[in-house]
Design a protein around this nucleic acid. Structure first.
Length: 283
DNA sequence: CCGAACCTGTGT
DNA sequence: ACACAGGTTCGG
């Protein structure tokens, strides 16, 4: 569920709570064909010191020495910090696993809950494995100059703007909400072909991506559906959304109704007046 | 490129 | 009953 601002919010909270700590126990309650694979997965993690917690796009990385734990929350994954060991009736329906992490003679518990079970935990045994995963991601929009982001949007491919923004190998961390919000802010219809964008439009789009992600992060992200942070708190950027989830409501800029369509397989929200599908022809 | 698949829950 | 949900991957 979470996109970059939500994952980064979670990352910061985990960093504050867990870095420097040692994994003392792992309780697995649900495992699929996907990770975690029970016994061996637990055994390899127990005793590991968490040296840092990083984020690449929407992926969280707990770094140990030469190895790491990758966590992807996908649509409905949550990581919840608790003071007490979650046993018996403390457990919720879709809790899949819990870590006990010791730091400064105290133990904190972290529960992984995932209603739709799309998310995964994956142990990366060495630097090569880590590099292989990390290298699949494109530019990090919060730390890349806007001009470089705009250059990455200069593709010869014929795909739509929306499909490009959702492609994690181009710019990492943008998902359905922020793709729509960035397109609105830049005045670009997401169904336009990427290669039809003028230089100024690509720059505007890159700047809009950076801006919307930063502003959302400052408000702990967007809780449009089920997202909560590690304390169970919602992000408050939902109140700032201009198009996502506002189907039929008046455009904040011009008053025309927000239109919902399907693009790249995803619900897509636009103002047809502020985001024309065709560029005005020159001459 | 599109739709389907992976899952469960919620809203119409 | 059916559509749809902050993601990603696969097959056609």
């Amino acid at each position: 569920m979470p996109e970059l601002p939500e994952v980064e919010t979670v990352r910061r909270q985990l960093e504050a709570a867990l870095v420097g700590g040692v994994i003392r126990a792992v309780d697995v309650w649900q495992s699929d064909k996907e990770q975690p694979k029970g016994e061996s997965f637990c055994r390899v993690l127990i005793g590991k010191t968490i040296y840092s917690i990083e984020r690449r796009g929407k992926l969280l990385l707990w770094r140990f020495l030469d190895d790491a734990l990758a966590i992807h929350l996908k649509m409905t994954g949550k990581l919840l910090l608790r003071a007490d060991r979650p046993l018996g009736d403390q457990r919720h329906k879709h809790d899949r696993l819990a870590f006990a992490v010791e730091r400064d003679d105290k133990i904190v518990y972290l529960v992984w809950n995932d209603v739709r079970r799309f998310g995964y935990l994956k142990y990366l045994a060495n630097l090569e494995c880590i590099e292989r995963i990390v290298s699949e991601y494109g530019l990090e929009p919060l730390v890349t100059p806007v001009e470089a982001l705009a250059e990455a949007l200069d593709s010869k491919s014929d795909r739509s703007v929306k499909a490009t923004l959702l492609d994690q190998s181009v710019i990492a961390g943008v998902g359905n909400i922020y793709a729509d919000e960035a397109c609105f802010a830049a005045g670009i219809h997401p169904a336009r072909r990427l290669k039809s964008l003028a230089l100024g439009e690509r720059q505007a789009l890159a700047a809009a991506i950076r801006d919307v992600l930063e502003r959302s992060l400052a408000l702990q992200g967007t809780s449009a559906h089920t997202y909560v942070d590690t304390r169970g708190e919602k992000g408050s950027f939902v109140g700032k959304l201009q198009v996502y989830g506002r189907t039929g409501k008046p455009c904040v800029r011009c008053g025309a109704p927000i239109v919902k369509s399907v693009l790249a397989g995803r619900g897509t929200h636009t103002c047809l007046r502020c985001q024309p599908k065709k560029r005005f022809q020159d001459k």
